Amino acid sequence: MNIDLNSDLGESFGAWRMGDDAAMLDVVSSANVACGFHAGDPAGILATLRAAAARGVTVGAHVSYPDLAGFGRRNMDMASSDLRAAVIYQIGALQGLAAAAGTRVRYVKPHGALYNFIAHDERQAQDVIAAVRAIDASLALVVLAGSPLTGWARAAGLRTVAEAFADRGYRPDGSLVPRSQPGAVLHDPAAVAQRMARLVRDGTVTADDGSTVCIEAQSICLHGDSPGAVAMARALRERLLAEGVTIRSFVEAEEGVPA
């Protein structure tokens, strides 16, 4: 059994500190690095990229709506030309910083509202897909497991990586419980670790109504900005390793790199 663990990093901004990137990079195998549109400043992003490179952690571009004030969690009805350009701009900026840090961008994972919206909205989804293809069609696109975005991206020739969320509640249809509702974010490290061990082993999670949801995922997201994030990440990693699960980047798995 193999699984990738990813986390959203590089989100500090000036004097405002977000998460513990150094600690999370010792746990995860892939880092979704902010590109400056929802969080992150150039110096902080570069430092995170250097830390990821030093640990051999795979790097992806965590692209967002241009929404610093809302941390990228507000829906935006952007024109297609604007959204495509914004995504290209963010990936390009991170590619430049990654090169300076001695690593490279291997995938794209949309952030926050953009991630949730394009999982089901074809127009904006096609804009993001077109942007990725325009700048580097070899980049994989991380998608919500079971979402329509998976089919749209594959039809356009992109590789996709199905993702599950360790600390987020699920609804019976496989979508995430909105953050505005009870049960959206989970906080018990032991319960989260047990839940994700079941996901890796059986491909299922329990929804907020008690029903069982089937989820086939290649990567598990561990949010780095929630209270106790590092403790939860460590508990999950330890539980998976104890059950014989190999933690490795999906990029390495695809390329056949020995575990």
Rank of each mutant, 00 (worst) to 15 (best):
V63C: 06
A69R: 13
D77T: 07
I45E: 06
A43E: 09
G96Q: 13
R73A: 07
A61P: 02
A52D: 01
A47H: 08
V87H: 02
V59A: 09
Y89R: 15
V28T: 01
M78F: 08
G36D: 06
G70L: 00
V87I: 09
T48R: 00
N75S: 12
M78Q: 14
V33A: 00
A69F: 02
L49P: 09
G40H: 02
H62Y: 06
A52S: 10
R84G: 10
T58G: 08
S81K: 08
H38T: 08
L94H: 07
S81A: 09
G92I: 00
A51N: 00
S81L: 10
G96H: 14
P66S: 06
D41P: 07
V57M: 11
D82R: 11
A34W: 05
G92V: 02
G96L: 15
G72A: 04
F37I: 01
R74T: 08
R55L: 06
A54T: 04
L94N: 08
R84V: 13
I45G: 04
A43V: 15
I45H: 02
N75W: 11
Y65R: 03
A43W: 13
S29A: 03
A23G: 13
A34T: 00
R55H: 14
T48P: 02
D67G: 06
V59N: 06
M78T: 05
A23C: 09
R50S: 11
A79G: 12
T48V: 07
M78N: 05
N75G: 09
N75H: 13
L25R: 02
I88C: 11
L25I: 02
A22E: 13
A61K: 01
V27K: 11
A39Y: 04
P42I: 05
V33M: 03
N32C: 09
T58A: 14
A93S: 15
Y89I: 12
G96A: 15
D82M: 07
R74D: 05
L25A: 06
H62D: 01
L25D: 07
R50H: 11
N75A: 13
A79W: 06
Q90Y: 11
M24Y: 14
A79I: 05
F71P: 04
V87G: 07
L68Q: 04
A86S: 14
A22N: 14
Y65N: 07
S64G: 15
C35L: 03
L83M: 13
A85W: 10
S29N: 00
P66T: 09
P66Y: 04
Y89F: 14
Q90K: 11
D26R: 08
V63T: 09
H62N: 02
T58S: 12
A39M: 05
Q90G: 12
A54Q: 09
G70P: 01
S80L: 11
D41Y: 05
C35F: 01
T48I: 07
A93I: 04
F37H: 11
A93R: 06
D77F: 09
A69D: 14
A61G: 02
V57R: 03
G56E: 13
A53Y: 01
L94C: 13
A54V: 02
L49K: 12
G96C: 12
R84E: 13
L68T: 01
D41C: 04
G70Y: 00
T48S: 07
Q90A: 14
C35Q: 07
A34G: 11
A69Y: 00
C35P: 04
R73P: 05
F71H: 14
D77E: 12
D21W: 12
R55V: 03
S30V: 10
L83Y: 14
